[in-house]
Design a protein around this nucleic acid. Structure first.
Length: 488
DNA sequence: TTAGGGTTAG
């Protein structure tokens, strides 16, 4: 009965029943224990699970692999990967299921390198034959590390042990190829799959998302397959559709899908909000934020990246300030580099250099030179040479070999007619041996046609989240273009 | 008679 409850998803009932059983002095056996431990992993009951671990030990069940695997899994699902690993290490005769449980314990907490290392170690030591469960986690690790070569080796193993028809393995392969940037292979695996599910479709859509601006036709194709299936709605597929259409610039189309959705969660809202923001729909982004809150979904870190990005690009200074404050004060979200980047951009463009400067000085990210570079760029526009001197000095302290602080400061001096100061900075740069970094150029795919672009912009377009490095790169690139003819 | 591990979206 106890295991029956766990099986039908009523884990809480199984625990209640366990306590009744103990109350009536009935001794739990191995079956009881493995079932209640599983209930603990499902319910996230870590301390209770630890208690059962003690019971397992006291009753001498610690050599029972089924029970130990349930414990490893319980620790893994509760994000205690080191406990899971330790337990495996204590096993007398570990088996492949316990090995897979450890691997998934690692991938669950983003320890992909460790997951792969553990996989190869156990392969060598115990010669376990990986099965469909192992492949799922291993491919996830390869994908998240962007290891195409390793992923292909695992794919070969999948074929070797004959697991190609499994829908989970297939979906994991599609996802791995997509994350490694090999859209062709992702599509190839997808087309060869006889059974597909919502996960397969989302994985392929995500692969198209990584491809950037040229994916709209393929996305529509997947969308049609989804619609043809009919009868079922899937929140992950639909959120991925909102995301991919937004990224392709088809923002109205994305919005239509979004409006037609029966269920929306935090990710769905964020896809829509970030999509609107990136497509220059400032006011609509703010309205979406209001709707989200009204519908009872609490905004998070990513929501505000979208909102502040929208404010900065639409020049909505007051709204930007208001939302930045509400993010920290009302929602208790600690502002990150992305948020500060938007604020510097917003305030800088509005000429509020001092306000942006004091915001950065008060922040935890005041040592991030890319933020100061952005602010220095804003000084150039507003021709504020006093602030520029101060900010350039700060930047030179943080990154003495970055040519941008010299170039931008000299530009500001020149713009306000301080020619001798401009020459002085140029000379200082030469004396210190600071070299200008020439950005690499490459072909990028924009709306299906190849354009000579810049590797930095390519990295930006392809990054799932515009992280601080990507933003720094794009700023670097833009500044280099602006500085090229002007100064050096 | 009853017990263990896997994949997707911002």
């Amino acid at each position: 009965m106890i295991s029956g409850y766990v099986k039908i998803g009523k884990a809480r009932n199984s625990l209640d029943l366990y306590w009744r059983m103990v109350g009536e002095d009935v001794e739990p056996n191995g079956f009881t224990l493995s079932s209640v431990i599983k209930a603990c992993s499902v319910l996230g009951e870590l301390s209770l699970g630890r208690g059962f671990h003690g019971v397992v030990f006291r009753r001498g069940f610690d050599t029972n692999n089924v029970i130990v695997s349930s414990l490893i899994d319980m620790y893994g699902k509760n994000k205690e990967s080191s406990d899971a690993l330790r337990l495996f290490g204590e096993m007398v005769e570990p088996d492949s299921i316990c090995c897979t449980s450890v691997i998934s314990a690692c991938t669950r907490v983003d320890l992909y390198e460790e997951a792969l290392g553990f996989f190869y170690m156990t392969q060598r030591k115990y010669r376990f034959v990986p099965d469909e469960y192992t492949f799922g986690s291993i491919l996830m690790a390869c994908g998240n590390l962007g290891r195409l070569k390793q992923g292909k080796e695992v794919h070969a193993k999948v074929i070797l042990v004959g697991e190609t028809s499994n829908v989970v393995v297939g979906s994991s392969l599609v996802d791995m190829y997509g994350k490694c940037g090999s859209v062709t292979n992702a599509r190839l695996v997808f087309d060869r799959m006889t059974r597909k599910n919502a996960v397969t479709l989302s994985a392929l859509l995500n692969a198209y998302c990584q491809k950037g601006l040229a994916a709209v036709r393929q996305a529509k194709e997947v969308h049609c397959q989804y619609l043809r299936r009919g009868g079922w709605r899937d929140i992950v597929v639909e959120s991925a559709l909102v995301d991919v259409y937004s990224k392709c610039g088809c923002i109205d189309f994305a919005y239509r899908i979004f409006k037609q959705m029966v269920l929306r969660n935090l990710v769905t809202w964020n896809s829509m909000i970030c999509g609107l923001a990136q497509n220059g729909r400032g006011m609509e982004t703010l309205k979406a934020l209001n709707d989200m809150i009204e519908e009872g979904t609490v905004p998070d870190y990513i929501t505000f990246v979208g909102v502040l990005f929208a404010c900065s690009h639409a020049g909505l200074v007051d709204e930007g300030r208001k939302n930045f404050n509400s993010m920290t004060e009302e929602y208790g979200i600690k502002a990150g580099v992305e948020h500060y980047n938007c604020m510097v951009d917003l305030l800088g463009r509005a000429g509020q250099i001092e306000e942006a400067e004091s915001l950065l000085n008060k922040s935890d990210v005041s040592t991030d030179s890319s933020l100061w570079a952005a602010l220095l760029g804003a000084c150039a526009t507003s021709r504020n040479s006093t602030a520029a001197e101060r900010i350039a000095k700060k930047m030179m302290e943080l990154e003495p070999n970055n040519h941008l602080s010299y170039v931008l400061l000299a530009n500001v001096y020149r713009d306000v007619g301080r020619w001798s100061d401009a020459d002085r900075i140029r000379k200082l740069m030469q004396d210190r041996g600071v070299k200008k970094i020439i950005p690499g150029k490459s072909w990028i795919d924009i709306q299906g046609s190849l354009t000579l672009g810049c590797v930095y912009s390519f990295a930006y377009i392809n990054s799932k989240e515009p992280d601080s490095q990507a933003l720094a790169n794009i700023k670097h690139w833009i500044m280099n273009i602006y500085c090229d003819d002007d100064m050096m």
